[in-house]
Every structure is written in C-alpha cells, then in structure tokens.
Design a protein around this nucleic acid. Sequence first.
DNA 1: ATTAATTCATATAAATTCAATAGGAATTGA
DNA 2: TCAATTCCTATTGAATTTATATGAATTAAT
Lengths: 145, 145
Amino acid sequence: MLSMKCKYALKALVVLAAEGTKLPSSAIAQKARVPAKFLEAILTDLRKADALTSERGAHGGHKLKGSPEKIMLGHVVRAMDGMLAPIPCASTFYYKKCDDCTDEKICVIRHAMTEVRNKIAEVLDSMSLEDLVNMSPKKKQQLFW
Amino acid sequence: MLSMKCKYALKALVVLAAEGTKLPSSAIAQKARVPAKFLEAILTDLRKADALTSERGAHGGHKLKGSPEKIMLGHVVRAMDGMLAPIPCASTFYYKKCDDCTDEKICVIRHAMTEVRNKIAEVLDSMSLEDLVNMSPKKKQQLFW
DNA sequence: ATTAATTCATATAAATTCAATAGGAATTGA
DNA sequence: TCAATTCCTATTGAATTTATATGAATTAAT
Ligand code: FES
Ligand code: FES
C-alpha cells in the first residue's frame, strides 16, 4: 500500500514537473490538493531524497532537482515508503532477514514475492515524472487528477 | 506490504498442500513455524475465504478445500490483506474513490498505479499453491523455508 | 531596521492498524 | 466423562500513519 505521504509526494512532484518553475509549498499544496502543513514535511523528505532543491526566505520555494525524465517513480516511492517488495526478504534496497525462516535460499514464499517485487520495480523504475505528466490527457490545462 | 498474517496464511496453506491430509492447527503451527494462537484466527479466515474446510472435536483439523493447483496466491492475499493494488482507486476487487482527486479518469497517479496493480495481479493470480510447493528444491523433505 | 514571506526543526496527538494472547464455549470421538 | 480440538469474543501493547502546532532561521523588499 502506498501511504498518503507517498501519494502526496508524487502529486507535488508532478506539479513541479509540469510547472517547471520554483514554487512555494503553499502554492504546491493548493495545486496538488494536499494538506499544506503535511506537505511541508514531505517536501523536506523529498529534498533529502535529492528530488528537489529548496530556497528559504521571501521568494523562496521548491524546485525539481534535475529534469523530470530523470526522476523515477521507484526512487520517490522508496524514499517515502521504503521497499517496493511485498516482504523485506525480497527487497533489494531494504533487505531484512525473516525470523521465521531458517533457509531463505529455498524459501518458496520469498521466491514468489521476489517475482512480485521485480515486476513492481520494473514498472516504477522505468516510469519518470515526465512520463506521468505526459500521461495526462489534460496536461495543457494542468489537470492531473 | 504483506502482513505477517498473510505470510503465515501462505505458509499454513503450503504445509496443507504438501501434506495433503487433514491436520490440527497445532501441527500446522509447528510445521509452518507460526505462533499457534495467531494461526487459529488465520485458519478461521481461510475457511471463510473458502480455502479450506475444518472439522471440530477430537481428530478434528483443517484440510485444503479443493486441489492445490486451484488455489491461487492472489485469492489468499486478497482474503488476508485486501487489495493487491498500491492504492484503492486502482483496485478492481476493493475499489474505493480518492477524496483528493476530482476526476479519476484522468488521474495520472491512478493510471500509473493501475499498471503496477495489473503486474502484481498477473503474478499472484497465476501462481497456485501447487506451484509454490513445486518451487521448493527440498519439497520431498518438506522443507520450504 | 522592519516587515512579510518563506523554509526548517521539533514536538505532539489522535486514529488506525498490526501482531498477538487470553479465556472459555461448543463440538466430537474414544 | 474425558481429551482434543475448533470456534468465538475480548483485550492488549506496540507501532505506524496522518496529520497539526509552535516557533526559529532565513531572505527579499520597503
Ligand atoms: S525468507 Fe522471507 S518469507 Fe521465507
Ligand atoms: S484517483 Fe486515486 S490517486 Fe487520483
């Protein structure tokens, strides 16, 4: 399950990708239809995840770091929610051993869930913010949802 | 994320699939290495999900309902954890509208997550308990994890 | 220098979900 | 009657989620 945090993060990034310019968090919150104060914390995390840069003070704001086609959904989702895999032992970026399994090399649950994780990663690691923006039939009107 | 409940459920079902026979929950708990009392509740849910049948009283126990190749992982995961989709609006079995989106037909988040959900469903709805058992290199020794 | 707009840091809180345990009623076979 | 079992209801503690509140630090404009 994607958390609200992650969903909001994606929306914020789509807004920034479509806009291209620097925007204050309040403007992003409005356009993305996301709780303003919650978004502030999310933007901080996105900055730490290297997805955007921020400037403080008057006329400050947030701007995408790098071009939209280089920021992949997989990167964003991992930064917000952690692993893509359904189960920690099947994760490549957030691997964790299972206490209830003695030999993960033969574990059939792990094998099955690794297949799932690979499919998820295939989709999310090949889809960029630009893809997301272009996906919208109304992108010229800046309507994404 | 797969819950522990779901993981335990899958393990219990693999044990039953491999064994073929009726087993009391205590025996399943031991073979699957799962907390006994927690498993009891899980087995009840699995019965309600039509994955097994139970007999009460002495010599009672639980038995797979139908053959292992007909019970799909997707069915089990849905019964335990709900939707496969990363987000409710992208779920086919557990659909729920998003409060923060005004037009889901054009929503790019939904479009992206629908792709993910379809990949997940493709894997889990085509993999059966029998597949899981056969996946094990040590199935003859009943070692699955 | 003051003010307004902003990010940033920290703390907190309410609600929900998860993982499990407890206790005992009901059922069944020996 | 007894032992083994499923089944039912309640509870618990911990963690996570989804925020909100407060105010410090920074910056540009006046
Ligand atoms: S090793 Fe993770 S489920 Fe078995
Ligand atoms: S409709 Fe669900 S994310 Fe937009």
